[in-house]
Computed example of a mutant assay.
Amino acid sequence: MKARIFTCLICLLLISTSVRPAEKTAVLPILEIVKAVTKKVIKAIDLRIQKLQNKTIWLQNAQKKVENVLSKLKLDEISDWTKKQKELYKGYYEELAKVKSLITYYQRIKEITKKQTSLVQEYERAWNLFKQDSNFKEIEIEYMERVYSGILEESVKSIDQIFLILDSFSTQMSDLKRLEIINKAADEIDSNFDDLNLFNQQNIMLSLQRAKTQADVNQVKQFYGIP
Rank of each mutant, 00 (worst) to 15 (best):
T25W: 06
A26H: 00
L28I: 11
E32H: 05
I33P: 00
V34M: 02
V34K: 00
K35Q: 14
A36D: 04
T38W: 06
I42T: 13
K43A: 14
K43C: 04
K43H: 10
I49W: 04
Q53G: 03
Q53W: 01
K55F: 05
I57K: 09
Q60G: 11
Q60A: 06
N61I: 03
N61R: 10
A62K: 11
K65N: 08
V66L: 08
N68P: 01
V69D: 09
V69M: 09
L70Y: 14
S71R: 04
K72G: 03
E77C: 10
I78F: 09
S79T: 08
S79F: 03
W81P: 00
W81I: 02
K83F: 05
K84N: 05
K84M: 09
E87F: 13
L88I: 06
K90G: 01
Y92Q: 05
Y92M: 07
Y93F: 14
Y93R: 13
E95Q: 13
L96T: 01
A97N: 14
A97K: 12
A97V: 06
K98N: 05
K98R: 09
K100T: 15
K100Q: 15
T104W: 04
Y105A: 03
Y105G: 02
Y106S: 02
R108D: 12
I109L: 15
I109S: 08
I112L: 09
T113G: 01
K114Q: 07
K115V: 02
Q116H: 04
Q116S: 06
T117L: 11
S118M: 05
S118L: 07
V120A: 10
V120K: 00
Q121E: 13
Y123F: 15
A126L: 11
W127P: 01
L129F: 10
L129T: 00
K131A: 10
K131Q: 14
D133Y: 09
D133H: 06
N135D: 10
F136E: 00
I139V: 04
I139R: 01
E140R: 00
E142D: 07
